[in-house]
Amino acid sequence: MSTAKAERLLIADDDPDLVNAYVLFFEAYGYDIRTAIDGPGALAIYCVWRPDVVMLDIQMPTMDGHAVAKEIRRMGALPRPLLLAVTALHGPYERIQSFRAGFDHHFVKPAQLPSILAAISDHPSI
């Protein structure tokens, strides 16, 4: 039942139950997935693996999702990865901060996974 256009998806969240749920959902659509439980882990995987899509929680230990997104954008990798914030932070200021950090989308938990899938599928470079 794969409809995925992107082959590689990196998911970083410090909640292992959420990570497992995300993995189950996106694997059903054919994504090759790697996971991290914090910002430094996500950045390390990104640097080695170069995924098409990076889905990051904002409030993670050690290095938050904004810092990871900024670092990925600073690297200037081409093709440019799609960056998705999936966070409990829901106010207008938090959305603005996500876009300033380099995210393409800001989803609020509990995120609707079909909406995230649609955002990935609609992205022109994937």
Score class of each variant (00 low, 15 high):
P114I: 04
A111W: 02
G76C: 11
R50K: 13
V86E: 02
R73Q: 12
L56M: 04
T3A: 12
P40D: 14
R8V: 02
R80D: 10
G30L: 11
L78T: 11
R95A: 13
W49P: 02
P61G: 05
L78R: 13
F103I: 02
Y46E: 06
A101H: 11
V23P: 00
T87D: 14
I96C: 09
K5S: 11
I45N: 07
A36F: 03
C47I: 09
I126P: 00
L10M: 05
R73T: 05
F26H: 00
S98L: 12
V68G: 03
K70R: 15
N20D: 14
F99L: 13
I37N: 05
I72T: 04
L18S: 00
K70E: 14
N20R: 12
H66V: 03
P16C: 15
A111N: 04
P110M: 08
H90C: 12
V54Q: 04
G76K: 09
A21R: 01
D122W: 01
V19G: 01
A21Q: 04
H66L: 11
A42G: 11
L83I: 06
P61F: 07
G30N: 10
P110V: 03
T3H: 14
V53D: 03
P114T: 02
L89K: 05
V19I: 15
P79F: 10
F99E: 11
A119K: 06
I116G: 02
L43F: 12
T87V: 14
E94T: 03
F26Q: 00
I126T: 06
D17M: 14
V54I: 06
I11T: 00
G91N: 12
P51R: 10
K5I: 08
H106P: 01
D14K: 13
A119N: 07
A69E: 11
S125M: 10
Y22D: 00
P16N: 15
D13M: 10
P110E: 06
C47W: 12
V48E: 14
S125R: 08
D15T: 04
L82V: 07
M60Q: 08
M1I: 07
M63V: 05
E71F: 05
K5P: 04
F103G: 01
M63N: 04
P40L: 14
A28P: 00
P124H: 10
A69I: 07
Y93M: 14
A28T: 01
A4P: 00
P124E: 14
G76S: 08
R74Q: 12
Q97R: 13
F107E: 03
V54T: 04
A111G: 04
L83N: 05
D32K: 03
S98M: 11
D14P: 09
R95W: 06
I45L: 13
V108R: 02
A111C: 08
S98T: 05
Q112E: 13
L9C: 04
K5M: 12
Y29W: 08
G65V: 05
I120W: 08
A119D: 09
Y46W: 09
T62Q: 13
P92A: 15
V53W: 03
